[in-house]
């Protein structure tokens, strides 16, 4: 597919947008056709919006001072093709009164791929976990519609939406190497693409996000259960030893 999509400018640290700092983040708009007019805007977590300009194919995002998810949006129209690229970016700052669900509910027109939901604040997309996305056209769900999911590491899968326009996707654990420690492995990129034709017009949409390795490489559930069991047994042992204290001698 020739869609446009966002990806972090190569800097493994600043890619996920989940750091605690307020440093500028840079993203690249991939799949750009040189001469085509592209508008880029940034919808803040409080739904205010600001226009951005591309430097080459990149934007540099400064902190808006507002907390929570923002949406980085690029829109392109070339003849009868309408392209839309979205990436949701977490920003740290002062709390706002809007919920990410309101940001996701914005109808940007045309074809859209909407996370339902996004990972909760301070959580992340993780491999081996299941996530849902909805494909909509002009705000209405598209049933039995195709969607291509690819990753930076080369995995790909074609999925079809259900009657309500949802797909369920398990992000593959396809990292070339996993360092068994939280935040140590450079994140992967999941890229979702879809297209739709209506009344002679073609609509293309993309959604991208960073994902991190599942914790299963360094967290063991069975060991955890074993320790709980040891705690239980120890507890039952103490229970037998606990001295009974009775204030009133005769009962």
């Amino acid at each position: 597919m020739a869609d446009i999509y966002w990806q972090p400018v190569n800097n493994p640290k600043g890619s996920g947008g989940h750091g605690h700092g307020r440093m500028a983040k840079a993203f690249q708009l991939m799949g750009l056709k040189g001469s085509t007019d592209t508008s880029v805007f940034y919808i803040h977590s409080d739904l205010e919006s600001s226009d951005l300009s591309l430097h080459g194919d990149a934007v540099h995002l400064k902190s808006t001072g507002k907390n929570n998810y923002h949406a980085l949006v690029a829109r392109q129209q070339q003849d009868d093709i309408h392209r839309l690229a979205i990436r949701y970016i977490y920003n740290n700052g002062r709390p706002v009164n809007t919920s990410p669900s309101e940001l996701l509910a914005l109808n940007l027109g045309g074809l859209q791929i909407i996370p339902s939901p996004l990972p909760r604040e301070h959580w992340k997309y993780k491999s081996k976990s299941l996530y849902r996305f909805q494909v909509t056209f002009e705000g209405k769900p598209l049933a039995e519609h195709g969607l291509l999911a690819t990753t930076r590491f080369g995995s790909n899968e074609i999925l079809h939406t259900d009657q309500s326009g949802f797909i369920e996707l398990v992000i593959p654990e396809d990292f070339p190497e996993i360092i068994p420690l939280k935040r140590a492995t450079p994140p992967g990129e999941i890229q979702l693409f879809s297209s739709y034709s209506s009344e002679g017009q073609v609509y293309e949409a993309s959604l991208t996000a960073a994902y991190h390795p599942s914790d299963s490489s360094w967290k063991s559930v069975s060991l955890g259960a074993l320790v709980v069991l040891i705690g239980l047994i120890f507890g039952f042992y103490i229970n037998r030893k606990l001295p009974e204290h009775n204030r009133r001698k005769a009962k």
Binding site: P180, V227, V228, G231, F234, G235, I238
Partner: peptide, 28 residues
């Protein structure tokens, strides 16, 4: 959330303590 974290000694100690305390709480 039921795990032993083997990534660093500190995480390991904390996760073992957490699991143990959970078991202990149920039994006691």
């Amino acid at each position: 959330q039921l795990f032993v974290d083997t990534s660093t000694p500190s995480y390991m100690v904390l996760s073992i303590l957490g699991d143990f305390l959970f078991g202990l709480t149920i039994a006691m």
